[in-house]
Design a protein around this nucleic acid. Structure first.
Length: 468
RNA sequence: GCUCCCUUCGUCUAGAGGCCCAGGACAUAGCCCUCUCAAGGCUGUAACACGGGUUCGAAUCCCGUAGGGAGCGCCA
């Protein structure tokens, strides 16, 4: 039997890392087992669903390359099908009309809570034959009265629910529209979903869904309820606690594979391995190894992993990312060689592609920003005199590359009787505008002779008092 | 309130009765390397929620307690 998994987000909020990890587990399980992965947008709540949220789901999944084999399906386009199943259930008697008003139900709930009971529908209309005039009824599922349902969960093991604890839930509103729990059941049945992998906040819904599936004569899927992700402070993920749109991670310069790598390690592990390529993740992933407990999102570790991925990715593959970030800073380049060189020089000193772009801006623009503190520290005193000597030596170089620049500077440093640091720092500030850059030889090689000399000249000119 | 779920370093985790006075990773502290910053290497601080059992022996099994979470919607 072919494995079929699905990711079924609701577009009532923006897709965030919690949803992405659930999607990742479903996707990995399908990929690992040669199955199909379905994307289904659960937009039955027309009031609260937004186009932007749908867009974030679609764009986010595309950015992360969590490709679906089917879909995206939209529940809002399947209403006819739901109505058809509803009619069948009413005819078969597995569902019935309920004429109780909201007020009546609220009153009932209030009484039950006052009596410290679990608020639930008591089945008043279960055996009703006659409609109540002037009332549009809802449709309720006729849940079994006794016995128990056992969810054989891949993560939690067997979980038992007594049917007596479950009431007859509403599956269609009085306006005829179907509700979430019902749509899920019909969709999973119609789409042949074999493995339902979802957040464990749905564990309590599962027995009802199983009962409905049974009433419809549909096979039961295998369930795996994965723990949720908490904010860095251990509180529930919310807007205030890092629950931002996944697309924000793209903007901030994270690599999709790094984000996935970080998320897969939340609740899952494979020996001592921390860094996984996409392929390694697919090969090693097993839903049976997923933890039961919730885990907190740790931005520092994500940052570390992102850098690990940056350092392990072919520079050429990073070029588009760097260019995109540079453009945001008003810099750009189409020089592939230059871009790859900068990536090679900078990837171990930036944790995100955005940070790399910020640190590398001086390679791509003429109007470099001068860090005043760095200038005060490294361009004052006898720095101009030293810089002048450096200028002369570099200007006479016949060959311009990291090795020749390095040799020339070392020699000069030896002649001046100091370390390389004596001349590297003023030079670094002169050409980059800051006291931090890749190794000075690599920096100069990338910058090229023309620009290096021009910047040293400019620094020299700037350090002298202006003539009056 | 009721039902269900969860509980190992600050954080992510390893651990399926003796291999554990608990291992790895991030973070953090120190050292090394070094032209800056990093990266890298080495070393350190740091955890089995609590209480009872079972057992020769428990982080691992059982029962409680505490804490956290979810569900109990004509929301998804």
């Amino acid at each position: 039997m072919t494995v079929v998994t699905r990711f079924a987000p609701s577009p009532t909020g923006l897709l965030h890392v919690g949803g992405v990890r659930t999607a990742l587990f479903s996707w990995l399980y399908a990929r690992r087992n040669g199955g199909n992965f379905i994307l289904r947008v659960e937009d039955t709540d027309r009031e609260r669903s937004t186009d932007e949220a749908v867009r974030v789901i679609l764009d986010g999944m595309a950015w992360l390359r969590l490709d679906a084999d089917e879909g995206p399906y939209f529940q809002s386009r399947r209403f006819d099908r739901y109505r058809e199943v509803l009619r069948g259930m009413l005819e078969a008697g597995t569902a019935y009309h309920c004429y109780c008003s909201k007020d009546e139900l609220d009153a009932l709930r209030g009484q039950q809570i006052a009596r410290k009971q679990k608020p639930r529908y008591t089945g008043i209309c279960r055996e009703r034959r006659e409609p109540r005039p002037g009332v549009d009824p809802v449709v309720r599922f006729r849940n079994p009265l006794d016995g128990a349902v056992v969810v054989q969960d891949l993560v939690h093991g067997p979980v038992t629910f007594q049917n007596a604890e479950l009431d007859d839930l509403i599956i269609a509103r009085s306006d005829g529209t179907p509700t979430y729990n019902f749509c899920v059941v019909v969709d999973d049945m119609d789409m042949g979903v074999t493995h339902v992998i979802r957040g464990d906040d749905h564990l309590n819904n599962t027995p009802r869904q199983m009962n409905m599936l049974q009433a419809l004569g549909a096979p039961l899927p295998i369930y795996a309820h994965v723990p949720m992700i908490l904010g860095p402070d251990g509180a529930k993920l919310s807007k205030r606690h890092g629950a931002v749109s996944v697309l924000q991670y793209e903007e901030e310069g994270y690599l999709p594979d790094a984000l996935l790598n970080y998320l897969v390690r939340l609740g899952w592990s494979h020996g001592d391995q921390e860094v996984f390529t996409r392929e390694e993740m697919i090969a090693a992933f097993d839903i049976h190894d997923v933890n039961k407990s919730a885990s907190a999102f740790n931005p520092e570790k994500l940052l570390w992993l992102n850098q690990q991925h940056m350092m392990r990715t072919m520079p050429a593959a990073l070029v588009p990312h760097l260019r995109a970030q540079l453009r945001r800073l008003g810099a750009d380049s189409s020089d592939q060689q230059m871009l790859e060189g900068v990536i090679l020089a900078q990837r171990e000193r930036a944790k995100t592609m955005k940070e790399m772009a910020v640190n590398s801006r001086f390679f791509f623009v003429e109007d470099i920003e001068l860090d005043l503190k760095a200038a005060a520290k490294h361009l004052g005193g006898d720095a101009p005199a030293t810089l002048a000597k450096v200028r002369a030596r570099l200007g006479s170089l016949s060959e311009w590359n990291a090795a020749s620049v390095h040799a020339a500077l070392e020699q000069l440093a030896a002649e001046l009787g100091g370390g390389l640091g004596k001349i590297a720092q003023p030079l670094r500030v002169a050409v980059s505008g800051s006291a931090v850059s890749p190794p000075i030889d690599a920096t100069l090689a990338l910058l090229g002779r023309e620009r290096t000399l021009a910047r040293v000249d400019a620094a020299l000119a700037g350090s002298r008092p202006a003539p009056n």
